[in-house]
Amino acid sequence: MADTAAIDVAPIAAALPTRRDDKALHRMIFVGIALLLIAAPLVLYPVYLMKVLCFALFALAFNLLLGYGGLLSFGHAAYFGMASYLCAYTAKHLGFTPELAILSGTATAAVLGLIFGSLAIRRQGIYFSMITLALAQMAFFFSLQAKFTGGEDGIQAVPRGNLFGVFSLADDRAMYAVVCVVFMAGMLLIYRIIHSPFGQVLKAIRDNEPRAISLGYRANQYKLAVFVLSATLAGLAGSTKAIVFQLASLTDVHWSMSGEVVLMTLVGGMGTVFGPIVGALVIVTMETYLAQFGAWVTIIQGCVFVLCVLLFREGIIGLVAKLIRKPL
């Protein structure tokens, strides 16, 4: 099985079995997050918070694939970015209301995930990652050349519009409320997927694929299913971001965005429920508040990443989970 896992994706922190009282703890954390989301705009800028939430959802979607499916995609920017283009386009040029625009972006990511995923899952380990990267590069060049994406300019001045045609989202606080709902719904859905009969099979395939096959599971179908789910949720994050920032640009389909989501997930803790949220918070905060240092941000980020890998391989939340001996 030399080619099954080029990278050791078996998460260390998630290795703790989830028991019933742990689920109670998770529920409390969910309530805590909801309360924090309500209180946060009193102290912090809603736009910054919305950026964190969009990236947190993106990282959560990515972690579903990496931490629980054991699949390292290096092309998740394609689903995030293409969804944001479609969302921006339908909102601006077709006059879609924001929820319909977000849905159309998300659906685009699902279809793209189905096509790219069914090609990529035929290979394992590093070859899988390389195929996802190559396909994402194709999506990037398509975005660069196609007319509707606006090339280098992207799609600018996307109207936030009125939710359900009624509620104006022009105000940041109204927009923030919508983003919170999208984020909470996405996070809870991912939590449910992880703790479902499907999630159980997924973890078995991640742990030992040949054995899962010998039990009669068609592993590739499960891998494709989780790939599509992950791409779809990444698309939901990208679409929401396009509405928030009223912009879809090449940055979101660029390979460095694929790298950034890997970074967020690893810093926060791969294979943990809450790690990607913390990872996104750390990375976005660094980018926002260290912006004055210009190009140095990348170097600081690099140092943080190296330190993370050296000091706590299991990520911030992974480390906490290990210390309190509970899966997080």
Binding site: P17, I193, S196, F198, V201, D207, R211, G216
Partner: peptide
């Protein structure tokens, strides 16, 4: 051949799950 990060009971249950439920794509 075991599933290292599942519990002992879960290891056995994953086989029962296949025999008694067939496929489990119900992620909801």
């Amino acid at each position: 051949a075991v599933f290292p990060h599942l519990t002992v009971t879960e290891n056995v249950r994953i086989a029962l799950q296949r025999r008694l439920r067939g496929d489990s794509f119900d992620f909801w």
